[in-house]
């Protein structure tokens, strides 16, 4: 079996901050109240949908921020019980809720502000039954969680839930070890940036600019 390097490519020219990817993730994974694994952030002014500059010389972009599934993840190194670990076959950084002792060392180590969230209380939900996919691992109080790259969908040979809902058709998913994959072609052909490259974490998320 050839190892994959699963990656996400986001085209910021097409992204319109609609939040559909965030809500798809929320429902698919039955996220507890106030928990968001994917957040839509404004690049520009200091409020959502606000640009930098002074009217009318303005500029605004959006990025979506979730676990970067780094090749050299800071979080995996520091987890004392190995609850967070990198899957060697796909490159996905995974989280085992049963092992997590809630020390939140991973949250301190991860440079990507806010991609990891801690269940500070017993998970609550807006409806009284589980929404989303039945195969999602139940959430636990006092453990850390984050984007799983929809592991339960990968297991069904499906892309993460945030991919197909993108209104702008701005999200792409695939294997960077396959030069024919869409993601490989995109980053070969287009200009892109990555977040915090100087940290040395080698994230697997690319933003086309």
């Amino acid at each position: 079996m050839v190892d994959k390097r699963l990656a996400i490519v986001v085209d910021t020219k097409r992204c319109i901050a609609c939040n559909s990817c965030a809500v798809a993730c929320k429902i698919e994974n039955n996220l507890p109240n106030e928990v968001w694994w994917n957040r839509i952030l404004n690049v520009g002014g200091s409020n959502m949908d606000s640009p930098s500059g002074t009217y009318p010389n303005l500029s605004m972009q959006t990025i979506t921020l979730s676990c970067q599934h780094c090749e050299n993840p800071a979080c995996v190194k520091v987890c004392p019980v190995g609850a967070t670990y990198k899957d060697p076959e796909t490159g996905v950084v995974r989280q085992d809720y049963d092992k997590c002792i809630g020390c939140r060392m991973c949250m301190s180590a991860c440079p990507y502000t806010g991609v990891r969230s801690f269940n500070w209380e017993e998970p609550g939900y807006h409806v009284d039954f589980a929404v989303g996919d039945a195969d999602v691992v139940p959430h636990q109080k006092h453990t850390v969680e984050k984007c799983t790259m929809c592991w339960h969908r990968l297991a069904k040979d499906l892309q993460p839930a945030c991919m197909e809902v993108c209104i702008g058709r701005a999200r792409f998913f695939g294997d960077l070890n396959d030069p024919e994959s869409e993601v490989s072609k995109l980053i070969a052909k287009r200009q892109y940036i990555q977040l915090l490259p100087e940290m040395g974490t080698k994230p697997s998320v690319y933003y086309l600019v």
């Binding site: 690049v43 980053i187 287009r190 940036i193």
Partner: peptide, 14 residues
């Protein structure tokens, strides 16, 4: 408040 990023040019943006 800004993104700490560096632009990485990959290939030629035709």
């Amino acid at each position: 408040g800004f993104l700490k990023t560096t632009a990485a040019l990959a290939g030629v943006a035709a």
